[in-house]
Structures are given as C-alpha cells and as structure tokens.
C-alpha cells in the first residue's frame, strides 16, 4: 500500500474528530475550518479563555500549512501540489489537540527540527524573549516571520510541541506536528 499522509495519524480517531481535512489548504478552506471549529466551541459553551487559545492555535497551524508546506512529492496523489496538508483537531479529556501533517523537502528537515527542539528546550520566559526578538528584528516576508507561528503556538499552549518526521524518499519527508491546548 502506498504512503498517504493519513498514515501519520493512524493513532488518531479522525472520524470522531472536531475537525478533519486533507487536501490543498487555501484561504477558503481556512475560513471554513475556522468557522466550523468556532461554531462547535460556542455550541459546547467552552470557556472563552480556552476557545480563544484553541482558535489561535488553529489559525497558526492552518496558516503554517498555507505558507510553509513544501510541494508534494512527484507521484503523490493530490489535486494540486502546493499547500497540501492534513489537519485533525480532536478533543481529549485533558484538552484540544491540533495535529497537522505536510511534506517537507529533505533539505529543510534539519532546520525545522532544530527550530522545534530549541523551542521545546526553552523555558516560557526564554520563549517569550525569543518571540519578541524575532518580532522586533526580523523582516517580514510573504511567508511571515521565520518561526514566529511555532513560537506563538508554544506560548499559547504552554506545552512542548510534539513532532515527528518520516522519510518519504530521498528528497521528501512527511512531517507531523501536534499542539495541545489543555483545558485543565
């Protein structure tokens, strides 16, 4: 059986998820996903503090896919090769978990891994200072500011960001990122 990004989330109950999407993450898909999740959080009367954190983490996660997902490998089935990814948001007893998967060019893997490892090793105060440093001193590009979205997710969740890579071929790696917004 050929590889599918869904293989990276085989441990998740995607049928019972609050949100599940796989495909090209364009602006319209982001709008629809945010509307859907916000509606569900309002319907379940989730506390405003949690609702806002979840919404913010989802915005950054979806826009990470929009801006940073590398092209899908040649031969992989996708209607378009760009902005291709998968997102699952599920509710656990301890909070809301947002998981995204996408392809990363092999040449970008080390940099991304180092960035995430640095974030996970930082204290909340160090994460805050790094965020401010990038905000104040880096120039913005059409893709945003390097790594600010990941730092924002780390600050808003207060948890380490779980991530894993799986080699697809010599040029491409599949990548999974998971953030948890705790409700306790």
């Amino acid at each position: 059986m050929s590889f599918d990004l869904e293989n990276l989330v085989s441990d998740l109950d995607i049928r019972g998820a609050v949100l599940y999407f796989k495909g090209n993450v364009d602006s319209e898909i982001i709008n629809r996903a945010l509307d859907l999740v916000e509606g569900k959080l309002l319907a379940t009367r989730e506390a405003p503090r949690i609702r806002k954190k979840v919404y913010n983490v989802l915005v950054e996660s979806l826009q990470n896919l929009y801006h940073h997902a590398d092209l899908v490998p040649r031969g992989y089935h996708a209607s378009r090769p760009d902005r291709y990814g998968l997102v699952v948001m599920d509710k656990l007893g301890k909070g809301y978990r947002v998981t995204t998967c996408n392809f990363v060019s092999a040449v970008h893997v080390r940099e991304l891994e180092e960035k995430l490892t640095r974030i996970n090793r930082s204290s909340p105060e160090e994460t805050k200072e790094l965020y401010k440093e990038i905000l104040n001193h880096q120039e913005i590009t059409e893709k945003g500011l390097g790594g600010l979205g990941l730092l924002d997710i780390a600050r808003k969740t207060g948890h380490r960001i779980d991530f894993r890579f799986r080699k697809y071929d010599n040029q491409n790696t599949a990548f999974r990122l998971t953030a948890l917004v705790a409700t306790e």
């Binding site: 913010n56 950054e60 826009q63 880096q138 913005i140 945003g144 500011l145 600010l148 730092l151």
Partner: peptide, 8 residues
C-alpha cells in the same frame, strides 16, 4: 484575535 503575520 490576531495572527503572527499581523503582529509584525
């Protein structure tokens, strides 16, 4: 709400 791209 504001995203990180707006923050700059």
């Amino acid at each position: 709400y504001f995203n990180t791209s707006s923050s700059k």
